[in-house]
Amino acid sequence: MEEILRVENLSKKYEDVDVLDGISLSVKKGEVVVIVGPSGCGKSTFLRCLNGLEDIRDGSVFLGDEKINPNKKNLSKTREKIGMVFQSYDLFPHKTILQNVTLAPIKVKKRKKAEVEEEALKLLDRVGLISKKDNYPRQLSGGQKQRVAIVRALIMHPEVLLFDEVTAALDPEMVREVLDVVLSLAKEGRTMLIVTHEMSFARAVADRVIFLDGGKIVEEGKPTDFFDNPKTDRLKKFLKTFSYEE
């Protein structure tokens, strides 16, 4: 399968601390890559570098043939092709659910309003939220907001979807409804990079799991190998923190 995203030797420092230390990664079209690791290991920073929300000083990121450069004028064109969903949903509080979803396609992509709305309603229906189209974000639960945020990313027809701990702020019973949506996207063959702490979800959704620690890729592999036969001691120790059996 063809490569869609390539990261070459990506490094990033915050005041002498290496947040990312020479990460290289190649993602194929349709692949689902899950990134796990302890807090502060650089997972979120890594995702944010991929669509230029962070400065890229050392190393490079390519989407197809295009190099992603945060200082370049056409960055916004590239960003349209990379959808991102955040931990804190970040819906626009003063816009209705439908307006939240249709804003970017209408204003950024200059598509026709009627056509965008029709697609928005279809997508909202898919995540079971069509009845909320005229509500404001405050009237929705966390899980519902996050599903809207996913729709908001989908309607831009991104080539790659980035999920940054999308269930970390949710009540446990709402985690499932969001992850089911992500899982259905994976089955459709979408290319996704997912940062998460939900290990059983990672196992279910991933084609490949990456363990990031200290800004480096410590271990990577298929979910079965990764979770059942971890090679490095660091990963063994990390996985143990999720289990209560001794």
């Binding site: 916004s76 804190s88 970017a104 950024v108 945020a149 908001r152």
Partner: peptide, 18 residues
């Protein structure tokens, strides 16, 4: 205005004027 909301708009490819 919540920085996250601005970042979300930026991630969708919105220009500064937008």
């Amino acid at each position: 205005v919540d920085a996250g909301v601005i970042e979300a708009a930026r991630a969708m490819g919105a220009s500064n004027i937008q």
